[in-house]
Design a protein around this nucleic acid. Structure first.
Lengths: 150, 150
DNA sequence: CGATACGGTCAGGCGACCTGACCAAAACGG
DNA sequence: CCGTTTTGGTCAGGTCGCCTGACCGTATCG
């Protein structure tokens, strides 16, 4: 009979609740230091380095349109987190380059995320945290045959 | 050393990815049958019965303002999923009552969610699915001392 | 070299929320 | 009891994070 999953939507809705809690923690942590950033701007950094990439590449990584990414990048540029220099290899394109301020933000973001992970590790234990991670990778297909993260 | 969590945000971002995948599956399943429903309307049913409740109670359950809930309920009423009858016990209030069409929707929603859960069970196995559920309950605080779902 | 793809930008729209302002009925406190 | 506060509902308007459509100019490919 296994666990009872109560009302409809509640069960996998917890995925969102957990995410929202984590995200809220990160946002309040960073919100103090970077009040001109909106939540969506953090999405930019959810993938490896952003330095030296085109806006359209960032959009593809984040899974949003280049127009939407354009707005985010423009905002960050206006507030001094990055600049857009012409790409010497392609005169249509402009390369996103983090400023010192932008690198500081990136670092603080990583730190804020580490805080959440530490909190979860404390509450769940190493083993269950790893279990969660591997289950999520399996569900989302973020796993290669060898078991490495993509 | 345990698992490597790669780029910042990626790791708990998977929570959202998993949720979005599940939600998308439910929406495409229901979208065919109920094209006039927007995703947000499903949120109404994510908690026990909606029948016989006030709009403001629904709002509180869903964690949104009564104004926002008002719009959702109005839309559902306009499309015949529910009616709002005066509350005999409180002449300010109106009680939400599901129509036959609304009960049909509720049933289909539960079924669509079951499909997702079955899919996940198939991919993860009973044990890991239960583990995911219990980890999420622990993280979100949706658990009472005795271990029962709230 | 012409057709097509691609990077970037402007304009406009929409969905899912929000706050503020009200009204009328209810509940509460002296 | 009666005035104050709370509460349920509604209207109006705003914000945020996305979207589509339409372009321009450069790159690339047949």
């Amino acid at each position: 009979m296994s666990t009872e999953y109560s009302s409809p939507g509640r069960w996998f809705g917890l995925l969102r609740v957990a995410f929202d809690q984590a995200m809220a923690a990160v946002e309040t942590e960073l919100g103090r230091r970077y009040p001109e950033l909106r939540p969506a701007h953090l999405q930019l950094f959810r993938f490896g380095g952003i330095d030296g990439l085109h806006t359209s590449e960032l959009a593809a990584h984040a899974g949003i349109t280049k127009q939407s990414m354009h707005e985010l990048v423009t905002h960050l540029e206006r507030h001094g987190y990055l600049t857009r220099a012409p790409d010497p290899a392609d005169s249509r394109a402009r390369l996103v380059r983090l400023t010192a301020k932008g690198r500081r933000l990136e670092k603080d973001l990583v730190r804020a995320i580490d805080v959440v992970r530490d909190d979860w590790r404390e509450r769940l234990g190493e083993e269950r945290l790893d279990a969660l991670w591997s289950i999520l990778q399996e569900l989302t297909g973020e796993v290669t045959p060898g078991g490495r993260t993509r």
